[in-house]
Structure formats: structure tokens, C-alpha cells
Design a protein around this nucleic acid. Structure first.
Length: 423
RNA sequence: GGAGAGAUGGCAGAGCGGUCGAAUGCGGCGGUCUUGAAAACCGUUGAAGUGCAAGCUUCCGGGGGUUCGAAUCCCUCUCUCUCCGCCA
């Protein structure tokens, strides 16, 4: 959520930047400013009345103390008439503030100046492409066939137990998942991130904090009996660890990592894109979250991109890094880099990570602040990134490394997997 | 699931319906002392809105009520803790 004062002071810039995100309801910006003016006006006139009421009440107390009953009664009448106006003002204020908030919540974060113009994924800027696309041997097949061949995932039984999109990992498939999780976590911990293992269900306030609510509740699984949501990513519980907290400036940056399953309803996707592990309702992911000083967030974004890049490189997968265009970015992000790995048998790029700077958009909702050197309260900036999403990494590893002698695993996984290949 | 207790500032913990944004302790910050540190002592130390500022207003888990006036009384919701039951 943007701050009203920021919108007020930067009206033209806000409108221009929202255009980059193809935000339709531009009039909302001025509506918000007008509403905030109204809020201030009523607020200050009401404060005036409250002040008079408080004063009169004190006087009544004093009169009563002296036993001057009649004068006290006269004062009471005075207060009663103030009260009427106060009641009206307060009802107005409640309404006005609620409207203001709901409008503010509809304004997406402003895209950074580095965001490319454009509407669709085709407009994303490829900032880097690296690694060598493997030349696959004859008879190479996509990962869903390799999965069957080596008995790594039992999709049919997943359907039987739960439904489509809930893969049942099995044998070496399950072990490879575990190996990847371990490896990713260790890699992140070595870079100074603190490991967390968060709850997989969150309450409303938490889902609101990272921007899943309101509006995106349809993307999450919901447990009505307890009013909990299944997390779509560890970002949600982990970023909320510091909700409503004032952190100490020297404690920044706060670097956190967590593995969790992720649950996504992803309504309405069918067809070849959802074959195998490309798109599922439940998958595992290791996530990075940082809370940083506002002056540092773009340097930290670069650092996180580099960190994820090293991780992808260490797996020997061909990859590319995209800077998302205004139309393809998420609501809350100011700048996002996506990582895609090339899955050679499908001949497709698969998104395996998304690294974003949210600036103060999330922390304004969550009120995560610090007191700066001058003693002024400031919002910290939040960032997050995947490192990495598991099923698609597995798909690419299987497809790219298939050979007559089985799936040859990258070196870094050997000690975690306990073998150099899947045969 | 049953029974009880509680929710106050960074933490701990007081708080007759008015003088309470809130005692006290710890912690934090500044200072005195010291070669330096510790100890001791002195001072200071919540957030939000509004305003150039002085100031004014709001906030003692959330919501509602009583009252001229509520941290304090009433209702309600949520959460936490303790005991019992059940359970990985």
C-alpha cells in the first residue's frame, strides 16, 4: 500500500508510473487526495470539539469537587450539544477512512524506473542468458516420461488421494526433492540467511500483510472452520514475522530463508502447460526474504539476483534472467527479475524464481519500521526471492541430464542425494 | 472438548471513574565519575493524526455500551496462559 502523503506530494509521478503498470483507474489518485483532504478537515474540526469537551469535563469535575452542583449541571448541557456534533463527525470519519483505505489498497506499487514498458510476457527484457543448452541424445523424452521410467512421481495416486495437481513423490523422486531442499537451504544459510520453518497456514491479518488479502483470496486454499489460509509461498508467514515491529537500525538487513510447501489454487489452467510438474497445486519451494534499510534495497535486489544466479549455475542448468515489464509484474512489486531454466526436452523456459523489491509497499501495510539516526520513524523495505521452486528445477534436471546411463545429477547434489545419478 | 485466569509502553509490572499516556523495575540513549571499562549517581526514553510551531487530538487486545468524563464499570468478540481430557 502506498502512503497517502507520498501520493499527495508526488501526484503527477504516481499517475505516470501507474501508467507503466497499465493501471486503469487513474482517477482514483485524485479521488484519494480529495478524500484525504476531507479527512483532515473533519478530523481537525472534530479535534477542536473534543478539546472543548475535555476541557468542559474537567471543569465539571472541579465544580463537583467544590459542591457547585447547579453550575456543573449547566456545563453538562453544554457538553451534550457538543456530543451530537462529535457523534456525527465520528461516523463520517469512520466511513471516510474506510473508503480511503479501500481505495489505497487498490493502487498497485509503482514500478521502478528500470521497469521495461510493455503488457505481456513477450515484453519482458532478457537481461542475461547463460549456460549451454544441452544436445539431447536420440530418443530423449520430456520429464513426465522420465518420471514414469524411473518411478519418481505417482501422479495417478496423487489424484486418488487428493486431486489433480497434487503429485505423490516416490522413491528417488522423493529423495531428490529432499536433496534439493537441503542443498538450497544450506546454500542460503552460508550466505548469511537465518533458516525458519514457518506455519503452513496463516490467519487473515498475515495474509493481508503481504497483500494476498483482500482480492486474491481465490488463489489460496481456505479453511473456513478456522479462518486460515494455506500459504501460497513461505514469503507470507516469513515476511510477517516482523509485522507491527519497530526494528533497530543496526539489526538491518534481516535475512531470512525458509523451505515450505506452497499451495496454489491457480483456477483455470489446463492443457499442455500443466503436464507433469510444470504447474501443480502443491509444490515445495525455498524462499528468501530480506528486510533492509530503504537506501539499500536496490543494491540488495542485485545481491539477491546474483545469489540466485550462483545457485542456478551450480546446478548446471541453462538459464536466463528477465526483467519483468510493467504489465507482467505483480501488484506489490516495484522491480522483479524472473529466472527461467531451459528444459531441453520440452524445449521450454520454465520460471523457477522471481526476485522482487517491494520497497515500502508491504511494510507500510505491516508497519515494519525502524528509527533512523535522526530519531525519525521510517518504513523498512522488503524483498523476496525464490531459491528455488522445486518441481520445475526437477523437470529441467531430469530432461537436460538424461542419458543412456540414467539421469546424471550435478556434482553439488551428490552428497545430498547419496548418489551421482538416478538409474 | 471441560474448568479457571489473564490481555497495560522494548520487556516485566502497578494502576480509588476525573489531576493517567499511564507508578516502579529492567533495558535503551545522554551525562558525571574513571587512563579505559564496570559499579554508582543524574537526566532522558511509546506510537499515530494534524499544524510552520506552540499546541491540540487519538491509542492501555478488537468492537459496542453506561457517564459530563472510562485503562478503570457493563456487554461482546478474539487471543494467550494454567489444570483436566484427547492426540502426533
Amino acid at each position: 500500500m502506498l502512503q497517502v502523503n507520498f501520493i499527495r506530494q508526488n501526484r503527477d509521478l504516481v499517475i505516470e508510473r501507474l501508467g507503466v503498470k497499465h493501471f486503469k483507474d487513474i482517477d482514483l489518485v485524485d479521488t484519494i487526495i480529495v478524500q484525504d483532504d476531507l479527512r483532515k478537515k473533519i478530523q481537525s474540526s472534530n479535534d477542536e470539539l473534543l478539546s472543548r469537551r475535555n476541557q468542559a469535563s474537567k471543569e465539571i469535575g472541579a465544580l463537583m469537587g467544590k459542591g457547585l452542583k447547579e453550575e456543573a449541571e449547566a456545563k453538562k448541557g453544554e457538553v451534550a450539544s457538543l456530543k451530537n456534533q462529535i457523534d456525527i463527525n465520528e461516523q463520517d470519519l469512520v466511513r471516510i477512512e474506510a473508503e480511503l483505505k479501500s481505495w489505497l489498497e487498490r493502487i498497485p506499487n509503482l514500478p521502478s524506473i528500470k521497469v521495461p514498458l510493455g503488457k505481456t510476457p513477450e515484453d519482458n527484457a532478457v537481461v542475461k542468458e547463460a549456460g549451454i543448452k544441452p544436445v539431447l541424445p536420440d530418443g530423449s523424452v520430456p520429464h513426465w516420461e522420465l518420471i514414469r521410467k524411473y518411478d519418481l512421481v505417482d501422479f495417478e495416486t496423487g489424484v486418488k488421494i487428493t486431486g489433480s495437481g497434487f503429485p505423490l513423490f516416490k522413491g528417488k523422486g522423493a529423495k531428490l526433492q529432499r536433496a534439493l531442499i537441503q542443498y538450497f537451504l544450506d546454500f542460503n544459510i552460508a550466505a548469511g540467511y537465518t533458516e525458519y520453518l514457518p506455519p503452513y497456514m496463516v490467519n487473515e491479518a498475515t495474509a493481508y500483510g503481504t497483500g494476498q488479502l483482500p482480492d486474491k483470496e481465490g488463489q489460496m486454499y481456505y479453511m473456513p472452520a478456522d479462518n486460515f489460509y494455506m500459504i501460497p509461498t513461505a514469503e507470507v508467514p516469513v515476511t510477517n514475522i516482523y509485522r507491527d515491529e519497530i526494528v533497530k537500525e543496526p539489526d538491518l538487513p534481516i535475512k531470512m530463508t525458509a523451505h515450505s510447501p506452497c499451495f496454489r489454487r491457480e483456477a483455470g489452467s489446463f492443457g499442455k502447460d500443466v503436464r507433469g510438474l510444470n504447474r501443480v497445486h502443491q509444490f515445495d519451494k525455498v524462499e528468501l526474504v530480506q528486510l533492509v534499510h530503504p537506501d539499500k534495497s536496490y543494491a540488495v535486489l542485485d545481491e539477491m539476483v546474483e545469489h540466485v544466479e550462483h545457485l542456478v549455475q551450480s546446478l548446471g542448468l541453462p538459464y536466463r534472467i528477465l526483467r519483468l515489464c510493467g504489465g507482467d509484474m505483480s501488484f506489490a512489486s516495484a522491480l522483479t527479475y524472473d529466472f527461467e531454466v531451459y528444459s531441453a526436452a520440452q524445449e521450454k523456459w520454465l520460471e523457477v524464481s522471481s526476485v522482487s523489491n517491494f520497497e515500502a509497499f508491504q511494510t507500510n501495510r505491516m508497519k515494519i519500521r525502524f528509527k533512523d539516526a535522526e530519531g525519525k520513524m521510517q518504513l523498512v523495505h522488503s524483498l523476496n526471492g525464490s531459491s528455488l521452486a522445486l518441481p520445475r528445477i526437477m523437470a529441467a534436471l531430469l530432461e537436460n541430464n538424461q542419458s543412456g546411463k540414467g539421469i546424471i545429477l550435478p556434482e553439488v547434489l551428490h552428497k545430498y542425494f547419496g548418489a551421482a545419478s538416478i538409474e
